[in-house]
Design a protein around this nucleic acid. Structure first.
Lengths: 200, 200
DNA sequence: ATAAAAAGAACGATTATTCGTTTTTTATGG
DNA sequence: CCATAAAAAACGAATAATCGTTCTTTTTAT
């Protein structure tokens, strides 16, 4: 059976995904044409369609692999014990996001913005993204419970509300960094610390 | 001179803009076709092109009018004196955003997500959006100076960093509300207050 | 009455996807 | 270890559908 090796097949797939990321980051999900991605990948139309059923499939794969890569990096940070103080955890998470999204020639943070937009019109994308962020927010809620137990936060604290605020801070950093391009993780960490988060 | 009255002309323009908002919120900037907007507006192609040079012009107008409407509502909130406490100000701003973006049949918050995405590929859009958010952030920085003077925040506080964190919180709420759809302004206000922002 | 505004059919350009052909990969027998 | 045949993979021109925009004609407001 003359079939391509799994290793080779996976490499080709990643090659196409890389090309898609670059194109999407430059022109967005729907202005990018299949021909853009095909040329950027160095392959042919037939080859690309051998790995992805259609453009929607490619979009979904580009978004979910980026989300999965980020999760792999973020989960250890928020589940490690002992837990750093709130401002330090936020700073660490943002630092990891900045490091993960920095790529050769483009910024993967842009893919996040595109994913949020796409989630407003594509039910499958919305489900995937909502699931990811909800799970991450649960881990933030677990962290606030730990802080509460350690006496770093008041015992009356509503951990769901606190987790929602922490997630907003993190998502907002991504927007601010992508649109204004003058914000560092350290800026936010210092801002949060000075505003007194986790100091009560 | 048989020319349409200014009043009538402005009403027609708004009619097209409303249609564009609805279409954009439903399908995004680039999946929405001119024909979608034309049909939604109840006018003809020729009429729409009489009010907007082309699709890019219509996109820019849809984004900037939405931004301008929001600024009109937000500026009084952050420039009023005496200033509410940080958590209360954040809550008030988010409440105003929620009220302003709630529309018949769609959520204007979606337009913000689309604008952020578009700013990554359109220099004109990026300039407009960056200008808006930078100006708003300056007002937040001014607010932190006031809090500092009132002794509500430490005198050593870096107001730029604090303003960046506050803006992240606000932008992040928009993302979280649009994607997860389970966050209220009150959630964030409580979360921020309980995390101790502005309590040092 | 007249000039602007609205209408909507028509056009040229572009798009995602397919499919017949060519090239490449790999399991197998010498 | 190497040559080879079979089958998958890659190629890329062709296709059918769709899009933004224009332009001539008709309607409408003043």
């Amino acid at each position: 059976m003359p079939k391509i090796s799994d290793e080779r097949r996976l490499a080709r797939r990643q090659q196409i995904l890389d090309a898609a990321w670059r194109c999407f980051a430059r022109e967005g999900l729907h202005v990018t044409t299949m021909d853009d991605i095909i040329r950027a990948s160095g392959l042919s139309a037939g080859a690309v369609y051998g790995y992805f059923r259609n453009k929607d499939d490619l979009i979904l794969a580009a978004l979910t692999t980026s989300l999965a890569g980020l999760r792999e990096r973020l989960v250890p940070l928020v589940t490690t014990r002992p837990l750093p103080a709130p401002a330090e955890l936020v700073g660490a998470v943002l630092g990891e996001i900045a490091a993960f999204t920095e790529r050769e020639g483009f910024d993967l943070k842009r893919i996040a913005l595109l994913g949020w937009s796409e989630s407003q019109r594509n039910e499958t994308v919305r489900g995937t993204m909502a699931g990811f962020y909800r799970a991450f927010r649960e881990q933030l809620a677990a962290a606030t419970i730990v802080w509460k137990q350690e006496g770093k936060l008041p015992a009356t604290l509503d951990e769901q509300a606190a987790a929602k605020a922490l997630l907003a801070l993190i998502l907002g950093y991504v927007v601010e960094a992508a649109v204004l391009d003058d914000v560092t993780p350290e800026d936010i960490r210092r801002g949060v610390a000075q505003l007194g988060i986790g100091s009560a």
